[in-house]
């Protein structure tokens, strides 16, 4: 974060924050507990994060 960005950043947080949460669902509860609007996107890395399997799948056309 540079000083040049800071005004914009502060401006963002000055408004009501709404969050799109991607991946780990645990963050959703924390945000909701803080009364922050959140939409969860159920996303996982390909093949559960197994790089060899993901590479194989990429070659097979997924």
């Amino acid at each position: 974060m540079t000083d040049q960005d800071r005004p914009q950043y502060q401006q963002l947080l000055a408004r009501k924050v709404e969050v799109v949460n991607v991946g780990l669902e645990g963050f959703v509860k924390d945000l909701r507990d803080c009364d922050i609007g959140v939409v969860h996107v159920d996303w996982k890395p390909s093949a559960g994060g197994d790089p060899q399997m993901a590479a194989l799948l990429a070659k097979l056309g997924v």
Partner: peptide, 8 residues
Amino acid sequence: IRLVVDSG
């Protein structure tokens, strides 16, 4: 099977 393994 590709969709199963990709998505889990």
